[in-house]
Write a protein that binds this DNA or RNA. Structure first.
Lengths: 123, 123
DNA sequence: TCTATATTTCGATAATACTAGAAATAACGT
DNA sequence: ACGTTATTTCTAGTATTATCGAAATATAGA
């Protein structure tokens, strides 16, 4: 959403997508929304119920929902006059996949991964 | 870092901390930095090496490193004129802990968690 | 102390995000 | 068609973040 600076062009696509999701979740209200929807399971929740639970102004909430939807973390289906929001698990799986695969010391001993860790780059 | 709006006061502390970490990781450059440091293991990397790898201007990089340090995702130790950065795994563990515990359909069948899922709130 | 190296801080600018009221839209029931 | 309810879009003000050159700081070595 921000202009990509010269020093960072054409880098890892998956990293970009993951960063976008993390940024979306990196706001307390949006993280709370997402948690609420995960707890709600496949039924999800209509926007009104979310608003009720979080006590946020409708326009602010709508703004955050759009953000979450844009990165694929939630989906919506219309039901009459209400819009039902549902967490999209596959997207979160991809995010967690990236983090555990690329950003984690899976079997970390205290002090970090061992010297012969497969992901450990040469010095 | 932003003023907390009226509708969201005194909410879940862990959620706030997690959101701060996700926001820090939610920037492509910072996510790339963090990944680099995880790959580097407990040795970490001096700032100069990171700069070399990412080809970012020094001041921009420093700004991002400070951000990551502030939320506890990395730590630094000084070594002569160089500053060595190391990923802080416990912080990431807490983040992933929150996400898997609160924001995940652990044993999700396609379509989301079952109706009797323990975390599923009442309608 | 002088110089070189490594990195941060400062300062300015531009871009983006957040918040929220008000107006607009969409679907439903009557 | 009209009113009602649910939600979004518009709009605007404010706050925050990103970028990066230039100057400052810190350390080590000669």
């Amino acid at each position: 959403m921000r202009a990509t600076p010269r020093y960072r062009r054409g880098v890892d696509e998956e990293l970009e997508r993951t960063a976008a999701c993390l940024e979306a979740l990196g706001h307390p209200t949006r993280l709370a929304i997402y948690r609420l929807l995960v707890r709600a399971g496949s039924d999800g929740r209509p926007v009104g119920k979310i608003q009720e639970a979080l006590a946020a102004p409708a326009s602010t909430l709508s703004h955050h929902l759009k953000h979450l939807e844009m990165v694929g973390l939630i989906v919506r289906r219309r039901e009459g006059t209400t819009h039902r929001c549902v967490a999209s698990f596959p997207t979160m799986d991809q995010v967690l996949g990236f983090l555990t695969r690329e950003c984690c010391a899976e079997d970390a001993a205290p002090g970090g991964p061992p010297a012969d860790h497969p992901r450990r780059a040469a010095d």
